[in-house]
């Protein structure tokens, strides 16, 4: 079992209670707030993860930290608790970065990528069910 599975086993991947205020906001505005947020989240995080991989290759850990910082906010907005927690921990781990950090950072990036792909599916499934 990978370290992130063990470390984050008690965290919810998708916390639906966090989405309820957003659905409420959408009902009041008569707009599909959740769909728009999910779409933007998926588009931006896909780009951010590619950027993180490039930054990791060049060992630019300060910028990796900055990208993790950005990513955590949209994860939290959509109730992606596990992804949010991973980003916080990566950001915190890179407070004082050095080249020795590389293996752990790599593990975090792998974990974040897997979790992002998983939650993307969950969010899409949820939207299909809500729309049905």
């Amino acid at each position: 079992m990978s370290f992130y599975n063990e470390k984050y086993k008690n965290q919810l991947s998708l916390d639906l209670t966090k989405l309820e205020p957003l659905f409420q906001l959408g009902r009041e505005l008569d707009e599909d707030v959740v769909s728009e947020l999910v779409k933007t989240h998926c588009e931006t995080v896909t780009v951010q993860l590619k950027q993180i991989e490039i930054l990791f290759e060049t060992k630019n850990f300060i910028q990796v930290r900055s990208e993790a910082h950005k990513l955590k906010s949209s994860a939290a907005t959509l109730g992606l608790n596990k992804l949010y927690r991973m980003c916080i921990d990566l950001e915190s781990y890179l407070q004082n970065p050095s080249t020795a950090c590389a293996p752990v950072v790599n593990a975090y990036i792998t974990g974040i990528t897997i979790e992002f792909n998983l939650t993307k599916l969950m969010l899409n499934n949820m939207q299909t069910q809500v729309g049905a």
Binding site: L25, G26, E28, L29, E31, V33, E36, L37, T40, H41, E43, T44, K70, S73, S74, T77
Partner: peptide
């Protein structure tokens, strides 16, 4: 804000 998701979120709340 340079974060698109946060911009979107603030947009909806301000509209409400």
């Amino acid at each position: 804000d340079d974060n698109k998701n946060d911009l979107l979120m603030t947009k909806f709340v301000i509209m409400r």
